[in-house]
């Protein structure tokens, strides 16, 4: 190398302000849009109450027995759906994360169906499934005299609400859990095996505890998704007040009869429920996780 070369002239660079400016502007516009929609809901209801004397409409919603029923059903069904979804999502997520097997790509594609299919189509398909099942079981009963009947009613009943939520939400849970398992090195399981574990013990004692954060995230996602589910529930379980009406259905029903104030009031209630649950899960979940990791 020629040591007598004069040093290269200083390389000058432009300001980074443009870069940061673009990040903030592009990202910020979306955040602002989210917050504005929520804010508009709140401002709208307040304006209707105080400027247009619409308090009775809001009050009607707040004291409505149907709405309280829908609230309870929404919270309960979302919770049950979440538990059920995790039961199937944990094994599928783990399978996809750890094993290469023939048909893996196909399985992956099948799991996308509930995510990409229009919600209404999912509802219709569920309805047809049970209708066809009914036709077939009737035919069997006619020919053989054997009565095959479902122990529980799904269409137009509460189990139908849960099934409709489950079909969609479990697919999201699988995606979330697979990512969570992907982040845990397989080496740890192998070490557990050398320490004397069976595959099951390694999973139960090492992988699952380590995936707590991912499980929590998947549960939250599933719950929120189920709370907002509307299309398949409307088609498959109906919108019968005091029976299968959930909060999104309530919003739709109020909206369809022109009661915008009522619809927005219920919407704000749903936002409140979701925010409370997510904050509680986050605070308790993180405290628990951080507590274990840094103990």
């Amino acid at each position: 190398m020629a040591s007598n070369d004069s040093p290269a002239p200083r390389h000058r660079v432009g300001s980074d302000r443009w870069f940061y400016g673009c990040l903030i502007l592009l990202g910020g516009s979306y955040i602002v849009l989210i917050l504005l929609t929520l804010l508009a809901d709140g401002v709208y209801v307040l304006m209707e109450i105080f400027l247009h004397g619409q308090w009775p409409a809001v009050r009607n919603v707040l004291v409505s027995e149907e709405i309280w029923y829908a609230t309870k059903l929404s919270i309960l069904s979302s919770t049950i759906t979440t538990v059920l979804a995790l039961w199937v999502a944990v094994p599928i997520g783990y399978l996809l994360s750890r094993f290469k097997f023939p048909g893996r790509a196909l399985l992956d594609a099948i799991l996308d169906i509930p995510i990409v299919l229009p919600p209404l189509v999912i509802g219709v398909s569920l309805l047809i499934l049970f209708k066809t099942g009914g036709v077939i079981s009737n035919a069997i009963a006619e020919k053989t005299g054997i009565e095959l009947s479902m122990p529980i009613d799904f269409p137009y009943a509460i189990p139908g609400v849960i099934l409709a939520q489950f079909l969609v939400a479990a697919a999201f849970a699988v995606r979330a859990l697979r990512l969570a398992f992907d982040e845990i090195p397989f080496r740890k399981e192998e070490v557990a095996l050398t320490l004397g574990c069976t595959r099951g013990q390694a999973f139960w004692r090492v992988v699952l505890p380590e995936a707590r954060g991912g499980l929590l995230a998947a549960a939250t996602l599933t719950w929120a998704r189920s709370l907002g589910e509307f299309g398949p529930i409307l088609v498959f379980a109906g919108a019968t007040p005091m029976r299968t009406e959930v909060l999104p259905t309530s919003v739709f029903l109020q909206f369809s009869v022109g009661d915008l104030v009522g619809a927005v009031t219920i919407s704000l209630g749903m936002v409140l429920i979701a925010v409370v649950v997510l904050v509680v899960v986050r605070v308790f979940g993180h405290r628990d996780l951080a507590g274990r990791a840094l103990r």
Binding site: P185, R187, K188, E190, V191, A192, L193, T194, L195, G196, C197, T198, V206, P209, E210, R212, R292, A293
Partner: peptide, 18 residues
């Protein structure tokens, strides 16, 4: 692996975070 009775120390430790 569980039956071989070998102590295994992997490259990065692979400790269990939980």
């Amino acid at each position: 692996a569980a039956e071989r009775g070998i102590g295994f120390v992997p490259q990065d430790g692979a400790l269990f975070r939980s």
